[in-house]
């Protein structure tokens, strides 16, 4: 219990110290910045408070796109992993393609998606889908195949079908890997959604707000969007952690 408090207290204290140093001009001094270049936390907070409804609406646009894209991308990624497991010969090729896709930067992906999809939301979902697919495919494939060979022998000893083996052995075995991928994907989906909004055919969303405001010297407004994006990321990450803790009670990492 005591150590738990400390593990929370230390980062918290560190964070508060960081914000105070920022507020009272330490960063500005060290980095030779003016407050109009890097607004102080109190200004960001008051700007955010004044524009909260719009910021939340934009946050909703970005996060809903990020989540839908992440769900579609994760499902597709896991399906690719499953296909590669059932049909190793050409499924392996699919895995290589997905891994290669993973290397395409989001800034290159966004214009391509703008060609294929006409609305900002579709473009965003498409970009996030591609970005999330790879992590899930790679982790999912590990989870479906990183299996004690005796476990499969045991299944064969009772004449289990490949489908039964998938259902009762491979899939549950992949759960920790799925959560690992989800934790990676929750961060990258928000990042991908934001970056796609830099380029998307729409004027809503956190990404557009960040880019547009920072370009137009509205630094405090831009930063309040950044704060909203970070908070949304942290909250969603914590949600995944909670779900994981509940779903993986049996896993050694949850002890």
């Amino acid at each position: 219990m005591k150590s738990k408090v400390i593990t929370i207290l230390w980062p918290l204290a560190f964070g508060i110290a960081l914000i105070l140093a920022w507020q009272f001009g330490l960063f500005h001094k060290v980095l030779d910045l003016k407050p109009f270049q890097l607004p102080v936390p109190s200004e960001i907070a008051s700007t955010l408070a004044a524009n909260l409804p719009k910021a939340l609406k934009d946050c909703g646009v970005t996060i809903s796109g990020a989540l839908v894209g992440m769900i579609i991308g994760s499902l597709m990624g896991f399906m690719i992993a499953a296909i590669a497991t059932f049909f190793p010969k050409w499924g392996y090729g699919g895995m290589i393609v997905v891994t290669a896709l993973n290397a395409v930067p989001i800034v290159a992906l966004s214009p391509i998606m703008n060609l294929w999809f006409s609305t900002g939301m579709e473009q965003k979902i498409a970009v996030v889908t591609v970005v999330c697919m790879a992590a899930m495919a790679i982790n999912g494939y590990s989870g479906l195949n990183n299996i004690n060979p005796y476990s499969i022998d045991l299944m064969h000893s009772v004449a289990a079908s490949e489908w039964t083996i998938f259902k009762k052995l491979r899939f549950p075995n992949s759960l920790p890997y799925i959560f690992t991928a989800s934790k990676i994907n929750i961060a990258s989906s928000i990042i991908a959604a934001i970056i796609s909004e830099y380029f998307a055919a729409s004027t809503s969303g956190l990404g557009f707000g960040i880019k547009d405001n920072l370009r137009k010297a509205e630094m405090a407004m831009g930063w309040s969007y950044i704060v909203v994006a970070s908070l949304a990321g942290v909250i969603l990450y914590c949600v995944i952690l909670l779900v994981e803790r509940d779903a993986l009670k049996w896993h050694a990492s949850q002890k």
Binding site: N148, Y150, S151, D153, L154, S157, V158, L169, N173, H251
Partner: peptide
């Protein structure tokens, strides 16, 4: 015999499924 599930087998390690 295997398809009729007539034998039980025990391996060198317990081969338990962690999630069960």
């Amino acid at each position: 015999i295997r398809m009729q599930r007539k034998y039980g087998i025990v391996f060198q390690n317990p081969v338990l499924y962690d999630w069960r």
